[in-house]
């Protein structure tokens, strides 16, 4: 049995600076898996509970608003509603994952564990955002599969579904990161969730076609990225969109690019992260 001293000598002698190349792949993977394991560890809370709640929403909204063979956008109300609800669940969970991860780490002080390792700002942004996206997409998949038991969902344009699912999860994961870095207390992030994310995910066309809105609000909706992601995602299922699909693709891509730059800049400058 070697004494601790000997062991230390041996390991020190064999230690050399490890060259990582332009990307620290192992560090990035470790950060990503840390983010994924964090929510999988409590999957009843992070996957099953959102699934149950969303299915309940489907039940109550189609019971309350669907009667009388009602059609919206050329399909049954439940078929119209289902994509919107899947999107709402994805959006709320991507946001919750990155924001809670960062706020908890900041409040408890273990944020240093991700700031100290040799990870660049780009790797931090990518690792944490990918963790949030993974949760959003997994919740979306779980909700979608659950809904198949109750609603005859059809797939009209699979690429639109995939693009908008990925872009929406990424957008909310980035927003969650920006919100999480900005927040200094749980109150702050709870306020962002209650007063920004929930209203946007509720009022941007999840439950209704925006044709029902007063003209002023219809114009406002065309400047709202949440509207384009719900509309484009729903188009992938039912083949009917309220707004322009091309503009939707561009808005999602550009807005994500903008958010990515902001999040990257926050990590690079250490805004509210480093003293």
């Amino acid at each position: 049995m070697s004494s601790p001293m000997e062991h230390q000598n041996v390991s020190l002698a064999s230690t050399s600076v490890r060259h990582m190349g332009p990307v620290n792949w192992r560090g990035l993977w470790t950060l990503y898996m840390k983010e994924v394991r964090r929510f999988l560890n409590v999957f009843t809370q992070t996957l099953l509970a959102p699934m149950v709640t969303t299915l309940l929403f489907l039940a109550i909204f189609s019971l309350a608003l669907g009667g009388g063979g009602r059609q919206v956008g050329g399909v049954d109300f439940a078929v119209f509603l289902a994509p919107g609800l899947i999107m709402m669940a994805m959006v709320q969970n991507s946001f919750a994952n990155t924001s809670s991860s960062l706020v908890i780490a900041k409040v408890q002080g273990n944020i240093v564990d991700i700031l100290m390792p040799p990870l660049s700002a780009a790797e931090l942004t990518l690792g944490i955002a990918a963790g949030g996206m993974t949760r959003g997409l997994m919740v979306g998949l779980a909700v979608g599969l659950g809904m198949l038991f109750f609603v005859p969902l059809q797939i009209h344009a699979p690429l639109f579904i995939l693009f908008h699912a990925v872009m929406a999860s990424l957008m909310l994961a980035l927003l969650g990161m920006i919100g999480g870095i900005w927040s200094e207390k749980f109150d702050h992030i709870a306020a962002v969730t209650n007063f920004v994310i929930t209203p946007f995910s509720f009022l941007s066309g999840t439950f209704y076609s925006i044709e029902r809105l007063p003209p002023v609000w219809q114009t406002v909706a065309h400047f709202n990225p949440f509207f384009y992601m719900i509309d484009g995602f729903r188009y992938g299922f039912i083949g009917h969109a309220d707004g322009s699909l091309t503009i939707g693709l561009a808005v999602m891509a550009l807005f994500n690019l903008f958010l990515w730059t902001v999040a990257h800049r926050m990590f690079a400058t250490g805004y509210r992260l480093k003293p």
Binding site: F61, A64, L65, G66, G67, G68, G69, R70, F77, D187, A190, A191, N194, F195, T198, P199, F202, L203, T206, F207, Y208, R212, L213
Partner: peptide
């Protein structure tokens, strides 16, 4: 957040129902 949060989410539900309500039934 504890008082105004539930107020906002309650009003959101009311707004959604007001906009999406079904005139037929």
């Amino acid at each position: 957040e504890l008082l105004v949060g539930p107020l906002v989410s309650s009003l959101l539900f009311v707004m959604v129902f007001a906009v999406a309500q079904n005139e037929r039934a």
